[in-house]
Design a protein around this nucleic acid. Structure first.
Lengths: 216, 216
DNA sequence: CAAATTCCTGACCAACCGGTCAAGGAAGCC
DNA sequence: GGCTTCCTTGACCGGTTGGTCAGGAATTTG
């Protein structure tokens, strides 16, 4: 996927050095784009963080846009994945809790990826727009039907499945996207494991209390 | 507040034209900064949207940074306000529902303001950092104590008050900050009143179910 | 209406930005 | 070790960006 963009068709072989440097570049680009957005980021900045000169970086990715596309492509699978695991055959409460926990772990382990998507969407999703209206919409429609099925069977309180999904996205991603604010309010430097446990406990409890066990 | 920055001490009187043009500029700046962030936005862009030339804009605000500060200052009171209304003397469920509804209305009526803060925080809160660690932290500490009081009195399920507040921020602001994504998933162009009602109903139900009426 | 003040603009500037290119240096291969 | 391919870099380029400035136009004030 990455290789399809990076240095596309410019060398005969794909070398070890290419592999290494493209990874360095994409790591740096993730950091820079997720903080400054596409327009706010500079190629120099990315190159410096990747430990190389600008012309050298542009030897691997000919254009700034190519870097952005590559780093978005590299992370967007990871983005859709957790929801795909929501299993109609499972226990509703357990499935939803597991989904929340997976998403929260992603926010903890890949905060920059989360922020990159936040940036992309704040800017009107110029790149991911089509994916959102396509694959993501299909996926949400699908899983909303699963949740609606649970509700119809009386196994879950009657809530709008789509807005429930939005709530889960919002609350979990918040810990990555707004980390600066959360740190400021809670005090301390980084979000501690304790604080993540507290977040997880609160989310589980509110969501499960809010939708648990149906019929009312 | 704005006048303290704009054209500070450069004219003797404060004129009608100053008032009008500074407002035009700040409206335009809100739009542009909230989409592109500080670095991604250009002064030309803001000037064009405000319907004036760049030198003319710079006659009112000498530097790009001054515009950014002014537009953040103008909106950040509005930001803190809804939480301040949370009243220890009121009924817990009613107070929290009212808070959620107020924040959701703010996201609906001032989505660009919400996005501006999201941008600022994604960029590490270079300007608002001090405010977050100061006024906002104090406010949250204060209101968390109120909620903890309700919990101790058995009028609310035992949840971490701070993380509950984060959840409310996350879910309500999500409808402004990630509007593009929500529109993509729900289909349609703008978020309809119906969809806002559905969001409100879902939020009210999940939060109230999740924390309602205490003791368990 | 005329003087004082404020407002507006075109022309301009230095710094920065994305991107190119020629040429030398390092790896890989036989 | 020599040939081929790949990697790296300094110098450079046109366009954009934030910001200045001199001077003319509009507005306010007496």
């Amino acid at each position: 996927m990455t290789a399809a963009i990076a240095r596309a068709g410019r060398t005969r072989r794909r070398t070890r050095i290419q592999e290494e440097n493209e990874e360095k570049i994409l790591d740096a680009a993730l950091e820079v784009f997720s903080t400054w957005g596409y327009r706010g980021a500079t190629v120099d900045q990315i190159a410096a963080l990747a430990g190389m000169t600008k012309p050298n970086l542009l030897y691997y990715f000919r254009r700034k846009e190519d870097i952005y596309l590559a780093v978005l492509n590299r992370t967007h699978e990871m983005w859709l994945e957790p929801l795909e695991h929501l299993d109609a055959a499972g226990d509703p409460a357990k499935e939803i809790t597991a989904y929340i926990d997976r998403k929260l772990e992603m926010a903890r382990d890949n905060p920059t990826a989360s922020r990159l998507f936040a940036m992309e969407i704040l800017q009107g999703a110029p790149v991911l727009g089509a994916t959102l209206r396509g694959r993501l919409k299909t996926l949400v429609d699908d899983k909303a039907a699963v949740i609606q099925g649970w509700i119809d069977a009386g196994r879950l309180a009657p809530v709008d499945p789509r807005h429930l999904i939005f709530m889960i996205w919002a609350t979990t991603q918040h810990y990555a996207d707004f980390e600066t604010q959360i740190r400021a309010v809670l005090g301390g430097k980084a979000l501690s494991p304790d604080q993540f446990d507290a977040a997880k406990a609160t989310l589980d409890r509110v969501f499960l209390g809010g939708i648990g066990s149906g019929r009312d």
